[in-house]
Nucleic acid binder design. Structure first.
Lengths: 116, 116
DNA sequence: GCGTTACTAAACCTTTTGGTTGACAACCTT
DNA sequence: AAGGTTGTCAACCAAAAGGTTTAGTAACGC
C-alpha cells in the first residue's frame, strides 16, 4: 500500500481519523486538543495524526512544545478525481445502454445482431 | 468499523480493489474474468469482491454457475458528500483568513505590532 | 536548575487483513 | 451418470492496524 491514493483512503477509513479531519476543517489544533474528546490515550491520537500526515492530509508545524495540526484539503482532489472518473464512465455506459434499449424499441425487428 | 462510510473508504484503500472497480465501471464481469489479470488466486479475488459488496460498491447477480459483478456507482456519493463538506468548510475558513489579512493591509497602523 | 507540559518512540498485545491451499456445492456438457 | 466450470467456504498463516504502557525528548514557567 505504497501509493498516496491508498494511504488517503485508508486514513479516512477510520471514524476517529475522519472526526479529526472534520475538526481540523474548522481550524488548526494541537494534539492534546484533538485528543480531548476521545477516551483513548494521547499516544493513540498521535499515531492517528501520523497516519493522516503520512497520507498528506495534515501538516504539522512548530510552536514551542506544541505541534499544531493543519488540514491540507487539496489532497481531497486526489480522491474526487479518481471517484469522478469512474462514476462518469459508469454513467456513460448506463446512458449507452439506455440508447440501445431505445433503439431496440424503435426498430424491434433489427435488434440484436443487425448486420447492415 | 461498522458504518458504511468506513467500509467504503477501506474497500478503496486497496489498489487491487480500486482496479476491480475501475474495470467494472466499463461493464459487468464475472469473478474469473476479474481475477485473470492478477497473479493471485481466484479465492483472493472472491474475498476482495466480498469486501466491495459489503461496502455496497458492487452487487452480484446469478447466471447459471456465474455470479456477475455490477458496479453500484451511487455509493460514491456517500464519499463525495463527506469530502465536499469538509473541503468547503476548510476553504471558507481560508477565505476568512484572506479577508483578515486584507483588512490588516488596509489599515496597517491598527494591525497587531505594525511599527508603521 | 527543576518540575511541568506537550509530544513522540519503543515494546508489547490483540484483532483484522490479505493471502494461501483444500474441500465442496452448483451448474452445465457430454 | 460422469466430468469440467465457476465460485464459495474453512482453516491456516504472516503481516499490518489500533490500542496499551513505559520511557524519553524538548521547550516552557518558576
Amino acid at each position: 500500500m505504497t501509493d498516496q491514493l491508498s494511504r488517503v483512503f485508508a486514513a479516512l477509513a477510520d471514524p476517529t481519523r475522519r472526526d479529526i479531519v472534520a475538526r481540523l476543517s474548522a481550524g488548526d489544533a494541537t494534539v492534546n486538543e484533538l485528543a480531548a474528546p476521545y477516551d483513548v490515550s494521547v499516544q493513540a491520537v498521535s499515531k492517528h495524526l501520523k497516519v493522516l500526515s503520512d497520507a498528506g492530509l495534515v501538516s504539522r508545524s512548530k510552536d514551542a512544545q506544541r505541534r499544531p495540526c493543519h488540514l491540507e484539503a487539496e489532497v481531497f482532489d486526489l480522491m474526487t478525481k479518481w471517484i469522478e472518473r469512474y462514476r462518469r464512465q459508469a454513467e456513460e455506459r448506463f446512458s449507452r445502454l439506455d440508447a440501445v434499449l431505445a433503439a431496440m424499441d424503435d426498430k424491434p425487428n433489427r435488434a440484436q445482431g443487425a448486420a447492415s
